[in-house]
Design a protein around this nucleic acid. Structure first.
Lengths: 314, 314
DNA sequence: CTCCCTTATGCTCACTCTGAGCATAACACC
DNA sequence: GGTGTTATGCTCAGAGTGAGCATAAGGGAG
């Protein structure tokens, strides 16, 4: 702080850049989507903070996403700030990236940006169709290998960590630990971003820089938030069926839910109210359309859509 | 907010400074403490990021706190990044502050730093002795006044917000909303930092810049974290009595807990194990000493110390 | 027009978790 | 030995949860 702020204490770096990064999430057709820019190694929408023009960091993010993709963001929350020394493309500049999570209803983006299925990048996180194949076929063997690459106490530490994070050795799979999982895979050198020699589809699509790490963190944050704040409704249109709501929660949590219990939770919790109108396009009995009851925010301390625990994996 | 030239003679900002800020929390004698620097308007330990020397932001924080206070930090997590344009003392420089939360066992700090009771700064957050006096005597009347300063729809919006955040009109008091409460008080112009003309003790001790806001956010974060991660143990010595543990949770949550239910929760949750030894300095029956069971992290998905809901206030 | 398939929705049951309170245990001090 | 104090054990009612059976209400096939 102060007029001469610390500069160049050791001689090499003397410049710093601030950027904002957005993980913009939507859910359509029961699939969680993340907004990406560019094709080969997709990146998250990213842009420099305008030191004079952007009054706040959050507004910088909104401006940047609007400029790059044409989307106006609704719900936005700060996620994390990355500032490791050796990030970024220009190593002569210390790059500080302030990452945000945004939830929107899907709309067609402009320019070079597109929606991509979030689980393309983190395929081991999606348990909706049972245990994801990449997990058992690729991740677990790699973990075992990684554990065995060390010995003695080090091996125990690794085994324990792998167990906690990936739900092995009696630990349950914790859907909120998506960041810890990605970071472990990164440290193992298993993901292409960490220099893995191979890049098979089981390892998920790579992203530019550390953007996949940011997506993993965003996923964990959303999953946690679902439990105690009514954030799903940011992703839905004003009227929706309970099954539609359930599908969105399932898409984000990466799990299947018991529909009867889910609906009990939702309406006993006073989260929604029926409109009396129905959606007949269900393929079966028509589903009543509901809307979010905003009043719930002032009635209950932590109104979430409740996720059950996950059965401990084998 | 006026045009740029009113704030900056050069017309545009072209410099930026990155600093790290630490909310270092400990609990002693049943009181939550926060580490502060300086006397009159205390501030949080703060220091510039060394662009070359600090490999990561977190390490920058540890170095800075060590340099300024002599304390080595244990548990550290990133809290929030502040970057509004008009923060800081030098308006010609855009100041970006990356704030961290750290939990430590209390030790005597060095230099100009000292521990201060956290509730000195946020007295309305402490319900352990019943509803805090400043809340009913000072905050609530100010809220009412603020609501009545507007009319029509605006008044309804204000009333609703005040109700949700401060637990009125049927809303329960949510201990985790400490940041929202502080921000509302700030917007109302009620806290000295926002230019309130008076500075009576009911408004809590002021801090430099927006540091009190950061403390409020840290408090909310700790309170939330208690529920689902075993963070309290970072604040306790290796062995402790269950009552001691309870006092720490109470200090942070600002509530009183039912001791029998608390201990049931703790040991049914497998969070601790008895050592067989006892503390005889209780003034009554000796209390068994316990230690944290680290294994719990791999047994349960979200091992916290569980807080009950708070009775809705009048 | 029925039957059948599909999805939505209602309801029950066993079990766990929680809030609250009563009761007992084990020490210090007198 | 009595008394005050804190620690700890236990019970009970009620709310919340996981699982599964049963019914309702459409569309489409025969």
């Amino acid at each position: 702080m102060g007029p001469d702020h610390e500069r160049n204490p050791r001689g090499s770096l003397d410049d710093v850049a601030i950027e904002v990064v957005g993980v913009v999430v939507a859910v359509t057709d029961d699939r969680p989507r993340v907004l990406t820019v560019g094709g080969a190694a997709p990146r998250l929408p990213t842009g420099a903070l305008h030191l004079s023009g952007d009054v706040t960091l959050e507004r910088a993010l909104r401006r940047m996403v609007l400029e790059q993709t044409g989307l106006e963001l609704g719900y936005v929350e700060q996620l994390y700030t990355l500032g490791d020394r050796d990030r970024g493309t220009d190593l002569a500049v210390r790059l500080i990236s302030v990452a945000y999570l945004a939830l929107v209803r899907e709309r067609e983006p402009q320019g070079d940006s597109q929606w991509r299925d979030l689980y393309e990048f983190l395929p081991w996180e999606d348990f909706r169709g049972g245990r994801p194949a990449p997990l058992d076929r690729s991740v677990i063997p790699a973990l075992r290998d990684w554990v065995e690459r060390s010995d003695g106490d080090a091996a125990d530490v690794r085994r324990e960590r792998a167990g906690i994070v990936f739900g092995r050795d009696g630990s349950p799979w914790d859907i909120e630990r998506s960041l810890e999982r990605y970071e472990l895979l990164y440290e193992m050198g298993w993901v292409p971003e960490a220099g893995a020699r191979q890049d098979p589809p089981q390892r998920g699509a790579a992203m530019a820089l550390d953007h996949r790490r940011i997506v993993a963190q965003a996923l964990g944050r959303v999953r946690g938030k679902l439990r105690y704040r009514p954030v799903v409704f940011e992703l839905l249109s004003d009227e929706f069926t309970l099954t539609g709501l359930q599908r969105v929660v399932e898409a984000l949590s990466g799990t299947r839910l018991h529909s009867q219990n889910f609906r009990r939770l939702i309406d006993r919790g006073g989260l929604v109210e029926g409109t009396g109108r129905h959606d007949t396009g269900t393929g079966g009995r028509p589903a009543e359309l509901h809307r979010f009851r905003r009043e719930v925010v002032r009635e209950r301390p932590a109104p979430g859509v409740g996720l059950p625990g996950m059965p401990t994996s084998g």
